[in-house]
Amino acid sequence: MEVLLALSIGVMTASGVFLILRPRTFAVVLGLTLLAYAVNLFLFAMGRLQIGLPAVIDAQQSGYTDPLPQALVLTAIVIAFGMTAFLIVLAIKARSELGNDHVDGLHLAADEEEQRHHPR
């Protein structure tokens, strides 16, 4: 189980880093999402891997799994989810305003036009 978990965190991080370095916004968004998944699994693993143990206090149980990383992961998931949603909307806005979905994409023709009429 440890090997499988470590491998999946590693593969997701590597794919995430690769995708972030791509030139299109969609790939970057996917890369950041994958990185967020990887870090969530990583946080989860930091409470040590336990099977079949509760996190909440229970009179019948002798051992517990660490509840704190679970709370951290929950918070991190919500935040990453919200931020990714924001980034997607921003990427769509950039696509329509800049005329392309390149991460550095200023639409040059339109920009020169603006330059001529409304110099900023």
Binding site: K93, E97, V103, G105
Partner: peptide, 13 residues
């Protein structure tokens, strides 16, 4: 504005 969008995209990512 387009410039804000472009700079914002970098900042957010």
């Amino acid at each position: 504005g387009r410039r804000k969008t472009k700079a914002g995209l970098h900042y957010v990512a």
